Simulated scan of single mutants.
Amino acid sequence: MTALLHPPDSLVLLVLALAVEAVLGYPDRLYRLAGHPVTWIGALIAVLDRRFNREADPAGRRRAAGVLALALVLVATGLPASALALACGALDPLVGLVLCAVLAASLPAQRSLHDHVARVAEALRREGLPGGRRAVAMIVGRNPETLDEAAICRAAIESLAENFSDGIVAPAFWLGAGGLPGGALYKAINTADSMIGHRTPRHEAFGWAAARLDNLVNLPASRLTAGLVAAAAALTPGASARGALHALRRDAGRHRSPNAGWPEAAMAGALGLRLAGPRVYGTTRVEDAWMGSGRADATAEDIVRALVLYRRACLLLWGLAAGLAGVWLTM
């Protein structure tokens, strides 16, 4: 075994890690006991933000401090992940592969994403608008008090589409490309972007490097995610692969994010919905383009339909990884 850094080992690792995470998720008991890799990375980013991001400094110095902070986060993540991969590679091949797969299973979040989005539909059915607002506030950053039922449902489906890309397909892509270190480094970049990569007075300069690097590393996964959603639509009664492809061609490039428009447009077109569009974060209204040309009045049933599509797309992702691993092993 080659330290689980390169194909075919990294692809086999990916196949096992996706299966383990889909079945087990990340156990709540383990989270309460030791946290999660993302929380460890987030704690380091928070410390660096407090110490390096000085509001009295000029923008150029704050940007340089953000570059340094990001570099420190990547080193602090990459070195332990590489050491763990090397340690797994030094064990019996089967034992090392299984152990590394269990570690890598903490990086994608198939089960967690599914459960969080499903809770929005359940809350709407059981508790109405107040429950739906509380549930959706757990997965989106927009002001829940501005959302009616249709907006809650759209927000949940948009979150499902976007997080399928950066919470599942992207870590899977980098796991397959670079083993455990590749997946861990991606999570560090994505966590940094989520914490400091915002266009706010505090973080526009300091988070510049995190935001730009996150855009770059998510580029291949966002396109792959759109393809997986379209393919899943072809296998799902009531969904439209043609609609997904049409929305992709027309709308994906109109999103303010260079990556989020791809999975959101594919999901919107597949389900016959309109997603994204104008929305409010805190007190700030964001004027974004609509993805898709269908109904804007989404319902809890549309969330359920989106979850069916998502589960099939996850299976396709696993099948793609397994197929690539099989091809590579026979070369």
Rank of each mutant, 00 (worst) to 15 (best):
A87E: 06
A205I: 09
M138R: 12
L175D: 08
T146C: 09
L94V: 15
A71F: 09
D251H: 10
G128Q: 13
T225P: 14
A135M: 03
A34W: 08
V95N: 05
Y281Q: 12
H255M: 10
A268I: 11
L33G: 10
R242W: 13
A76Q: 09
R62E: 00
L248Q: 12
N215I: 00
V327G: 07
W318F: 14
V73G: 00
E287Q: 14
D297G: 10
G132M: 07
R62A: 04
Y31M: 15
A300R: 15
G131K: 03
L18G: 01
R202G: 06
S112C: 14
M331L: 14
L185Q: 00
G96R: 10
P108K: 07
G141C: 07
R254Q: 12
V327R: 14
P93Q: 13
L91D: 01
R285M: 13
W328E: 10
V73E: 00
P201Q: 09
A71N: 00
R134V: 12
A22G: 05
A244Q: 04
L84A: 15
F52T: 02
L175S: 06
L185E: 00
A210R: 02
S293Y: 03
L13T: 00
R212S: 11
H203T: 14
R305D: 01
L315Q: 04
R312A: 01
A76L: 12
L219A: 15
S293C: 07
N163S: 14
R142E: 04
P37T: 02
W318A: 15
A17Q: 04
N215F: 01
C153Q: 04
G66F: 00
L5Y: 01
T200E: 12
L213D: 11
A150V: 11
L317S: 02
P263I: 09
L271W: 12
A123M: 08
L245K: 09
P7C: 07
G182Y: 00
I189W: 04
D193S: 08
L94S: 09
A266F: 10
P80V: 00
L124A: 09
L147H: 08
A135F: 05
A34G: 11
N218P: 07
F173H: 05
S240D: 03
I45L: 02
A150F: 14
G179C: 02
R199F: 06
R285E: 14
A231L: 15
T283H: 13
L13K: 00
P37W: 07
L11Q: 05
L72P: 07
A252P: 10
A306L: 05
L235F: 02
T39R: 15
R142T: 03
L13H: 00
R119C: 06
R54V: 12
D9N: 14
A101T: 11
G42F: 08
P278T: 07
P258M: 13
R199V: 05
V140P: 01
G60M: 06
L129N: 05
M1W: 12
A270K: 03
A244N: 04
L248K: 11
A59T: 08
